[in-house]
Design a protein around this nucleic acid. Structure first.
Lengths: 84, 84
DNA sequence: TCAATGATTAGGCAAATGTCTAAATAATTT
DNA sequence: AAATTATTTAGACATTTGCCTAATCATTGA
């Protein structure tokens, strides 16, 4: 839960998640969308992976990142306790 | 949206929100539940208020904090874009 | 009015965060 | 095999965060 909120607490990481709504993408393709350096984006992707918001798979020399929506359910569950 | 995720990115602040599910409480009553100093809790409450997750009302020498569930809808909306 | 109570503000400090450049690792291409 | 491309790791640095104590503000009670 901690890693989840931590991962979401950054606009760049949230933008990455929104990007991945359109389908999986390589680290490089993701990085292109932002003005930050590749290492910075790589670090953001690492935090997203720690929170299990994304999964990564190596395909040749590329690393493909995919949105993992499973974790959103956990978050929705936490939120719903407040809706009543 | 930024203030919202920022406010949620702390276990103490999330615990305060859960405490307020049982109804409004004064700053002092909230602070009693935690081992942190009153100023620290006051600061957490301030961040929750900035995110509009709580409202505060002065009643005499007390300040009563109340959960504001309206903002949760915004968060739910953001999350739902990923569920489909 | 003065003391006590509830709460916030101010200021300081260590740890965490987000960024960068340089270097390393891994896979492909020539 | 060497050069190129994709990505991550390492290390540095400024900023932000979360905590504290001391001081201040505001309200109530003696």
């Amino acid at each position: 839960m901690n890693a989840l909120f931590k991962a979401l607490n950054d606009p760049t990481r949230r933008a990455i998640l929104e990007r991945l709504r359109n389908g999986p993408a390589t680290a490089g393709a993701i990085a292109e969308q932002f003005q930050f350096s590749a290492p910075t984006i790589s670090h953001h992707l690492d935090l997203l992976r720690q929170a299990e918001l994304v999964t990564s798979e190596k395909q040749g020399q590329f690393v493909v990142y995919t949105l993992n929506m499973t974790v959103f359910d956990e978050l929705l569950g936490w939120l719903y306790q407040f809706k009543s």
